[in-house]
Design a protein around this nucleic acid. Structure first.
Length: 445
RNA sequence: CGGGGCGUGGCGCAGUCUGGUAGCGCACCUGUUUUGGGUACAGGGGGUCGUAGGUUCGAAUCCUGCCGCCCCGACCA
């Protein structure tokens, strides 16, 4: 993309309403525009990152054998009356009426809808196990939306639901989700620690929240520092292997890691003192096993081998896709702007032309741009007639991991400059060598 | 929902106390200049002062209602 043809409304000054760094940077980098309290338009750059994150979530869900579908945002109140949650959910649920006066609602979650789909079409134990998920906009009418996309009223979320014949099968689904979530967050350059959590209104004995450590996190967390040494890495996983999934769960959840909801001071104090950590975290996902709560309420049963109806065991699992943008920025930025992890960056690299209009510099940039595109990489070429300082400031703000700086001075010696956004380190390389290095980083060679 | 604060060109703000018909910086447009980390100068366009009502010869400014937004707390992906 050429910057002169793009829409990137960056701001030099920070809008007054933004208090935390991710919100400020998202506004300054032209990623979002607030529409009303807790509701945002996603401008091109923000939309691009949102879609990148969504893609990773889709890929990892499907790798784990989960099946995508799409349910509506607007739901009939009838199903919610049937489950008993129409009255229970309270003020956070946005209730509306259609022209016929029928009660509708903007879905805050989808247990009712997905269970309805299930009971309409699944009637035999042979159809199990089944895990359905979707990524869809949700609305929860927060009393006090804040922190930009981290606590919006409208938010984009992956929610999935597993249906199993037995508790054992459902617990394997639980483990499978925990494993797939570890992979998902790592691909985004995040360390998200599974922590024992509280069931809340969804209920359930088994539940973990995934937290990204950040000073601005809303939850207080207590953990053994050994958990931050754990990394999923690129190990092979067979998601059908019950023992392997169970093993990963044990590896990642045995050490003490809890939020303030479930914190146990006595257990915490058993950790060697030098490994005790009290910090803050951003919740970016949660998994539940809740048994037959919804299947009982909504009559989701299958016929077992003996011909008798059995309520299915269910769990639900969520990843806050829109919230993740804020969480990633909270975890990865500096005083000059965002530092995107390579897994989610909106463009693979920036090309800065230090002297727009100089025939040699223009030609070198065009050549880099064409070659990079041919390699399947997406560069952002700053071809504005701006001064170097302005171009560098923009690149730093929007946080592309790599920048190629092209100017007449370097070209005289046959080199361009390749700079890492994260370390700030630069090296001078022949243009093709710089390209090869970027291609290798993104596995395009 | 309790407490606090703020609404003035796209953004950041001054002006409000003490009423006299709107200003600064950034951004934008034109020209000159400059060009390896946000050049300098000159000219220019753009504002129902959140909104409705009231007081007054006269309201951004004083009074009242309403709306919107932000922060702290309690609650939540």
């Amino acid at each position: 993309m050429r910057l002169t043809r793009y829409f990137l409304p960056v701001l030099k000054e920070t809008p007054a309403e933004a208090q935390i760094v991710s919100h400020r940077l998202m506004l300054r980098a032209g990623m979002i525009k607030q529409s009303s309290a807790g509701i945002y338009s996603w401008l091109p750059l923000g939309y691009k990152v949102l879609k990148n994150i969504e893609t990773i979530v889709h890929e990892e869900q499907q790798r784990a054998g989960h099946i995508p579908l799409l349910m509506p945002t607007l739901q009939s109140a009838d199903l919610w009356r049937e489950s008993g949650r129409y009255d229970d959910y309270g003020e956070e649920m946005l209730r509306i009426q259609d022209r016929h006066g029928r009660d509708m609602l903007y879905g805050p979650t989808n247990e009712e809808l997905v269970t309805d789909i299930f009971r309409s079409h699944v009637s035999s134990y042979k159809d199990l196990p089944l895990t359905l998920y979707h990524i869809q906009w949700k609305f929860r009418d927060e009393r006090r939306p804040r922190f930009g996309v981290m606590r919006g009223r409208e938010f984009y979320m992956k929610d999935g639901y597993n249906f199993d014949l037995t508790k054992e099968d459902a617990l394997h689904a639980y483990n499978r989700h925990l494993v797939s979530y570890l992979r998902t967050y790592e691909r985004m350059g995040l360390q998200a620690i599974p922590m024992r959590a509280d069931g809340g209104p969804i209920g359930g004995d088994y539940t973990h929240e995934f937290l990204v450590l950040a000073e601005t996190g809303e939850s207080e967390v207590f953990y053994d520092s050994a958990v931050t040494d754990l990394s999923f890495g690129d190990r092979e996983i067979d998601y059908d292997d019950v023992a392997q999934c169970q093993g990963v769960l044990e590896e990642f959840t045995t050490k003490y890691a809890r939020t303030d909801e479930t914190h146990d001071e006595a257990l915490f104090n058993e950790i060697p003192e030098e490994r005790r950590r009290v910090a803050r975290g951003i919740e970016v996902g949660q998994i539940f096993y809740f048994g037959t709560k919804y299947s009982d309420a909504l009559g989701a049963t299958v016929q077992g081998p003996d011909g008798k109806p059995v309520s299915v065991h269910m769990g639900s699992h969520g990843i806050g896709v829109s919230r993740l943008l804020g969480a990633i920025i909270e975890a990865s930025h500096d005083e000059n702007g965002i530092i995107w992890p390579e897994g989610v960056t909106p463009f693979h690299a920036g090309i800065v032309n230090l002297k727009q209009g100089d025939a040699e510099a223009d030609a070198a940039c065009e050549d880099l741009y064409a070659k990079m595109s041919a390699m399947g990489l997406e560069p952002l070429y700053d071809d504005r007639n701006e001064r170097a300082g302005g171009k560098f400031a923009t690149m730093d703000l929007i946080g592309l991991p790599w920048r190629i700086t092209v100017g007449p001075r370097g070209l005289k010696n046959g080199v361009v400059e390749l700079t890492s956004r994260k370390t700030g380190e630069s090296e001078e390389l022949a243009p093709d060598a710089a390209l090869n290095k970027i291609a290798a980083i993104y596995g395009k060679q």
